[in-house]
Design a protein around this nucleic acid. Structure first.
Lengths: 316, 316
DNA sequence: CTGAAAGCGCTAACAT
DNA sequence: ATGTTAGCGCTTTCAG
């Protein structure tokens, strides 16, 4: 009933050395079937729970994976996609006894990456928003991955392609694309897919640049309507952009999908819900979560009840 | 130019003992101004970067804070609110060299909590979805916080109250509430606020239970319309519910806000955008993020390009 | 294949 | 206030 049986306890009970017990439990290094069995049994008997922190310290490995997001705005860490990703990682590494931390990196990330490489508590790094991987320090070699710049990304060309084909199938022949910003590497694939497919089908190319936001989606739709009034479909490269397009079309009295069909990309949760600009009240989830983390760590913050502010829009 | 100067190096350079250096650097324990200064200088000189993992191992503290969400569905870890919270924590603990991991706990969480308490890699725990804190093991005492059950929550009573007052100001007198499930502690505050305010204002009480989802919002709105046809406002306790209400009203030909005003709660990002059910394509952010985490940790997964599936709804 | 021993980098008594 | 001395729990050469 001691606090927590360690590997030493297990080794003694199994009649082997600490080293052997370690080899068996961690699965690295040789071990005879006999001792393997003995250690297994002993571990089960005393209810051995490994201590990842000790293990990692001994190995010189860190205990957290750092999710570093490069962006102009520090608020990027609250971006829905970033949070989805961070949470997914946090769930993914749980079983390994690791955690993930999230960090915003300004555009000139070189220095930031050096500091990360020097931090021995960092087991590995996941980068996002890094178009070029040239500035990744050597110290990170072998222990980082880059979403969106490393072949590690959604197959947006195929996704957009499937949607464009669908539009063609339902008879649309004058399809416009609201693309991502031209300078963004991640925006090339959808644009390429669009261009290729339109050419193959002998259809006109109608591209208006966007930036993944609803605001630019609104502008883009207006531009499309003005420049090519006979457009019968608009494909946007993000759901947010599509929402903007829809708003713009509604304002112009264009019926969807009879007059103009619209497609987005992402399938964010609300994509399935219609809505009007909603009157509501804020819910400071981030503040509360951060406070909870601090509180759990022992810092007794005074604030326990967080204010909610009404946000009045068009429904009330 | 050695790999990483340790505290020993700093201590030697500062001409003090390891212990003193530790005291200064960690800030715990006494230290004369003189040695404090010496250590500071030495640390800066060699570019000392503390090793949180070693520190925490020596202290017997864990290296991650575990966000444990109790719910019926394992998919709760992808809930937008959960991800927002998890990401916010991950950003909050970054500076401390800690990480956060995310875990789903089934409804009979007792066993799960025991295991968490026994895991020495866990520095602290943040609980969500735990209405009662009776089943929290003693081993977690002093190192956990509970969102929603510990006074650590949004002030929803005030938030809803402000909205209701607004509705009253704009002349609404027959206000219905789509509440949360009756058995949920978190649902009591909004309901209480509503009841109190309606009574004080001498207005009728019209409550229909919901469950925070859009689906129940739709049903609830229909119920309201049938039961109290003269209702001129519907307050929902979540934005998702409000979206459902809006859909239902639109289907019934009720104009918003002229006929019926609607309010939600949460201010989720899309609350400001209108939309029709959108045709789009999936974007498996979670899969990619999890793969990225694994890849960063050295597991060479084969999948690098993740499939996107078209989701056809009403706009195309 | 196995064991003894020397750490990983820092902290915490205890004594001075 | 400071130094000495054991560890934290596990890994890993290096012999045997």
């Amino acid at each position: 009933m001691s606090s927590s049986p360690g590997l030493a306890e297990v080794a003694r009970l199994a009649g082997v050395s600490l080293a052997t017990a370690s080899r068996v439990v961690s699965g690295r290094g040789p071990a005879s079937a006999a001792s393997r069995e003995a250690v297994r049994r002993a571990a089960a008997e005393v209810g051995y729970v490994p201590h990842p922190v000790a293990s990692r310290l001994a190995r010189g490995a860190g205990t957290r994976i750092l999710f570093a997001v490069r962006d102009r705005r520090a608020g990027i860490v609250h971006d829905p996609f970033v949070t989805r990703a961070a949470a997914a990682m946090a769930a993914a590494v749980d079983a390994d006894g690791l955690g993930v931390s999230l960090r915003h990196l300004p555009l000139d990330a070189a220095a930031g990456l050096e500091r990360i490489a020097a931090d021995r508590s960092v087991a590995a790094v996941v980068l996002a928003g890094h178009d070029s991987l040239d500035d990744v320090p050597a110290g990170l070699r072998g222990r980082f991955a880059a979403i969106g710049a490393d072949g590690l990304d959604v197959d947006s060309a195929a996704g957009i392609g499937a949607l464009l084909r669908h539009l063609h199938v339902i008879g649309r022949r004058r399809i416009a694309l609201v693309s991502g910003p031209a300078w963004l590497a991640a925006a090339r694939a959808p644009l390429g897919a669009y261009t290729t497919l339109m050419r193959e089908a002998g259809l006109p190319i109608r591209v208006v640049p966007g930036d993944f936001t609803a605001g630019r989606g609104r502008l883009a739709a207006a531009t499309v309507l003005r420049r090519w009034p006979d457009t019968d479909a608009i494909a946007a490269v993000s759901d947010a952009t599509a929402f903007g397009v829809l708003q713009s079309l509604a304002a112009a009295g264009v019926r969807v999908p009879c007059d103009v069909a619209v497609t987005g990309f992402d399938d964010i949760p609300v994509a399935a819900c219609v809505s009007a600009a909603l009157s509501t009240a804020t819910h400071p989830v981030e503040l509360i979560a951060a406070a909870a983390a601090k509180a759990a760590l022992g810092a007794d913050s005074s604030a326990r009840l967080f204010p909610s502010r009404p946000v009045l829009r068009s429904t009330a």
